[in-house]
């Protein structure tokens, strides 16, 4: 599978990373290298092996349904760039 700079720009857009033309080219080279490694991995015959969802053979532990957290709004909002009426303020986003 070979990537193009258009793919790189799309991935960057999806991750909301601003990327210039030269940077896109450099990233393309790096990503192509990584994909080469993945191709090598894919050459291994894994038929009959169940895909792992996690690197460790352990399963999820569950938490009891109890409220343990207290209100720390003031503390959390002390590092927020803009707040008002208890809300975090962000640049206007509305899909139209």
């Amino acid at each position: 599978m070979s990537l193009t700079t258009a793919d790189v720009k799309r991935i960057a857009y999806l991750a909301r990373i601003e990327i210039g033309e030269t940077e896109a080219q450099a990233t393309l080279d790096k990503l192509t290298g990584i994909l080469g490694l993945i191709e090598q991995l894919q050459a291994v015959d894994t038929s009959g092996v169940e895909p792992m969802s996690h690197a460790q053979e352990v399963t999820q532990r569950l938490r009891e349904d109890i409220v343990t957290e207290t209100d720390q709004r003031a503390l959390f909002q002390s590092i927020a760039p803009a707040v008002e009426d208890g809300l975090y303020l962000v640049p206007k986003v509305i899909e139209s």
Binding site: A82, G86, L87, Y88, V90, I94
Partner: peptide, 15 residues
């Protein structure tokens, strides 16, 4: 929840 009422041209976020 996003609140799009006018907060000086910004959106308010309640998590």
């Amino acid at each position: 929840k996003s609140l799009h009422e006018d907060f000086h041209g910004m959106s308010g976020i309640d998590l």
